[in-house]
Design a protein around this nucleic acid. Structure first.
Length: 167
DNA sequence: TCCGTATTGAACT
DNA sequence: AGTTCAATACGGA
């Protein structure tokens, strides 16, 4: 019996480590960077993963590798972004930043019609469940400083450099 | 209601 | 060029 809100968790091995993807019935719900702490993350193999999710997972894996190479991913699975209205508006604005471009927290705040909500934008970025595909790494503080990153600033730098952005 | 935040810009050393 | 500070919107407890 397939539960509607069950999450399926699968791993994506890359040269940079093992990413973890979680899927809801609606699509990709969460993407996690490789955890550096553990040598062997707990097994994520699952039985009875629906075909649809396997198909999404292949797209995710391919897209992730494109993104890590600094290219725009194609054929991404649907993203099941769960959050408040405000967060979804921020995440939606992030997705409009094209590969190789950056915006500041303030510019995002303006884009969603709340020019003063700059810190709240930072908060929403930090709450982003799908980094890389929802490109929170393309948001820099004013004057091109890095700001922060939930997956670690090294990842933020790496992703930006792969896209050809110079700091 | 209080606290923290992945900000920002101004006013100071 | 670095530090401090207030304004500010949101989310979690």
């Amino acid at each position: 019996m397939l539960m509607k809100n069950q999450l399926f968790q699968l791993s994506i091995p890359t040269h940079a480590g093992q990413f973890i993807a979680r899927y809801s019935a609606k699509g990709l719900a969460e993407l996690k960077f490789p955890s550096v702490g553990r040598a062997s993350p707990r097994a994520v193999k699952q039985n009875g993963v629906p075909t649809q999710i396997l198909r999404w997972h292949r797209a995710t894996a391919t897209g992730l590798k494109s993104s890590l190479a600094g290219r725009k991913p194609k054929n991404l699975p649907p993203l099941d972004l769960a959050g408040t209205e405000f967060q979804k508006r921020v995440w939606n604005a992030l997705r409009k930043i094209s590969t190789g471009r950056t915006k500041s927290y303030g510019e995002i705040a303006q884009a969603i019609g709340k020019p003063k909500a700059v810190r709240a934008v930072g908060g929403a970025c930090g709450a982003n469940p799908i980094p890389v595909f929802v490109p929170c790494h393309r948001v820099l503080a004013v004057n091109k400083k890095l700001g922060g990153f939930s997956g670690g600033l090294d990842w933020k730098r790496t992703l930006l450099v792969r896209e050809g952005i110079v700091l």
